[in-house]
Simulated scan of single mutants.
Amino acid sequence: MIWTPGREDRVDGMPTAGEWRRLSVVPEKREVFGCDLYFREGWADVLSVFGGDATGVLDGLAMLVVKPDAVAGRRLGPIMEYLADNGFVPVATTRFGYTRHSMREVWRYDWHIYTVDRLQLCTFWYLTNDVLVFLARDVRPVPGLPATVRLCDLKGVGDPARRQPHHLRTKLNPPNRMLNFVHVGDEPADIVRELAIFLDRPERLRFLEDLRAHLGEDRTAQARAEIAALEADCPAHDLDLAAALSRLAPLAGEAAAARLRDVAASGPRISWDELAELVPFEKADRWDVIVTASFVVHDERPVPHALLPPVSPEAWTAR
């Protein structure tokens, strides 16, 4: 039997039509996720742990994932403060590491705009150190608005020109639009899918069981302990371009450093392979390379349209 969106009976554990309405407001996403391997596996596990309460539990949770640059740049403390200031209480936290494949799967429907050069940079960057995923309970809920949609709106977009002073990314002061520190699940459906990408099934089930056992608690202390352990394993970095180029100059030569300064200041951007010719990666500090690359490597290409429509809080509250 082939599953089709809107069927009220379950086929292979898929959401009913009523559950889909609480997981996503985007019809195209519901159709795509109905065939998505990670969503299907993730939903089966969420159902096995929470049963008929699954959509209600997801509705009250926001998912925030820090990126490797947030760890090196020591932004995790400010992230915790922002969550608390905006009515989000951590209830589950776990550590994981991206792989070449998982990073592409999480942003399968977004990274089509990236150049091959930026994909090479992302592979180098995202595999540098472990990260954390937080699930946080919304203690200031907005009627009709899932917690993760509210937090995603507060996060702010990648383009600094379109951010507001109250946005999380504004508060974190990223060095550029590429190193932007955090990812937030767009909708409850994205929480389901992305947990299945981040965590293998045994670890995912343990995480979900732990969440169920402590759903009503404030587990800020546990989250801060996870942060401390992760930061102990990852040296801090200033994420500053000028400082990075000053450290690279003795290794690459002043002419190469001057070339990179010119590219960063006025372009045009260069390829990943050209950067590798200018900078001896094997001798350089990895984060100096990442920071420099984020300013000089070809980053985006023109594409005709988004693969999935964007999600807006208004689309949820207007229903």
Rank of each mutant, 00 (worst) to 15 (best):
L172Q: 08
V66Y: 05
V71Y: 06
P141N: 12
Y114P: 00
G73P: 00
R118I: 07
E254N: 02
S102K: 12
M178S: 12
V157P: 00
T170L: 07
V289R: 05
D190A: 14
P174F: 05
L135S: 09
K171H: 14
R7Y: 04
D159Y: 08
C35N: 01
E274V: 01
P268G: 08
Y126D: 14
D85P: 02
A236T: 04
A265E: 08
G60D: 15
L308R: 15
L23F: 08
H101M: 11
E105H: 10
D238Y: 00
T123F: 12
K171V: 11
F88V: 07
V192L: 15
D117F: 02
D36F: 02
T317P: 13
R301I: 14
D262H: 13
D53K: 07
G253P: 08
M103W: 08
I290R: 04
Q164L: 11
A315I: 06
T99M: 04
T128P: 02
A265Y: 06
A213T: 06
A244R: 00
R74V: 01
L168C: 00
D138V: 10
C152V: 01
A236F: 00
V25L: 01
L307K: 11
A306E: 14
A213C: 00
E300R: 08
K283R: 13
W272H: 06
A161G: 03
G156N: 01
Q222R: 13
D200T: 03
L119Q: 14
V57L: 08
H112Y: 11
R108K: 15
L135F: 15
H167I: 05
R137A: 14
T94S: 15
L145P: 12
L132P: 08
T115S: 13
D110T: 09
D200N: 09
Y126A: 15
A284E: 07
D288G: 09
G13C: 04
T93S: 08
A92P: 11
I270C: 05
D138H: 09
Q222M: 15
L58G: 08
D85V: 09
A136M: 11
G144D: 06
L76K: 02
L76V: 12
R75F: 06
R269L: 04
R22W: 07
G77I: 01
H237N: 05
A232Q: 12
R22P: 01
R301L: 11
L145M: 08
H298I: 00
P68A: 09
A44W: 04
A54M: 02
L154M: 14
L127R: 11
L278Y: 02
E282Y: 07
A306C: 06
L211G: 02
P27Y: 04
K283F: 02
L47Y: 02
E314D: 14
G60H: 08
W272L: 03
W3N: 05
R259G: 01
R7D: 01
S24M: 05
L58Y: 03
Q164W: 09
